[in-house]
Amino acid sequence: MDFVTPRLKFAAAVSLAALVAGLLAGNAPVNAQEFPFGLEMTLEAARMPGSKRIPSLEIGDHGEVVIELWCKGGKGQFSVAGNTIVFVPGAMENRSCPPERAQADDELLAALSDAATWRRQGDFVTLVGPKQLRFRINTN
Rank of each mutant, 00 (worst) to 15 (best):
M1L: 13
M1W: 13
M1Y: 14
D2V: 02
D2H: 07
D2L: 06
F3G: 10
F3E: 12
V4S: 05
P6A: 03
P6L: 10
P6C: 14
R7G: 08
L8N: 07
K9A: 12
A11D: 02
S15L: 14
S15F: 12
L16M: 12
L16I: 04
L19G: 09
L19W: 08
A21Q: 10
G22K: 05
G22W: 06
G22Y: 08
L23W: 04
L23F: 03
A25C: 12
N27W: 09
P29V: 04
P29S: 11
Q33Y: 10
Q33A: 10
E34L: 14
P36G: 11
F37I: 04
G38W: 04
G38D: 05
E40W: 08
E40P: 04
M41G: 06
M41Q: 11
L43P: 00
E44V: 10
A45G: 08
A46M: 11
M48G: 07
M48N: 04
P49E: 13
K52M: 14
E58H: 08
E58D: 13
I59V: 15
I59R: 03
G60F: 02
G60I: 03
D61K: 07
V65I: 10
V66A: 12
I67Q: 11
E68M: 06
L69P: 01
L69R: 07
W70C: 02
C71F: 06
K72E: 12
G74K: 04
Q77G: 04
Q77R: 14
F78V: 02
F78Y: 05
F78T: 02
S79R: 15
V80Q: 02
V80M: 09
G82M: 03
G82P: 00
I85K: 05
F87P: 01
F87M: 11
V88D: 10
A91I: 15
M92Q: 12
M92H: 04
E93Q: 15
N94M: 07
N94S: 14
R95C: 07
P98H: 05
P99G: 09
E100V: 02
R101F: 10
A102P: 03
Q103M: 03
A104W: 02
A104P: 01
D105S: 04
D106C: 00
E107V: 00
L108H: 00
L109P: 03
A111Q: 11
L112G: 04
L112A: 09
S113V: 03
T117V: 01
W118L: 09
R119P: 04
R119I: 01
R120A: 08
R120L: 05
R120F: 02
Q121A: 11
G122Y: 00
D123S: 13
F124N: 13
V125R: 02
T126A: 14
T126L: 11
L127A: 04
L127V: 06
V128E: 14
V128Y: 01
G129K: 01
G129I: 02
G129C: 02
K131L: 07
K131D: 05
Q132I: 00
R136I: 12
T139P: 02
T139A: 12
T139N: 09
N140I: 05
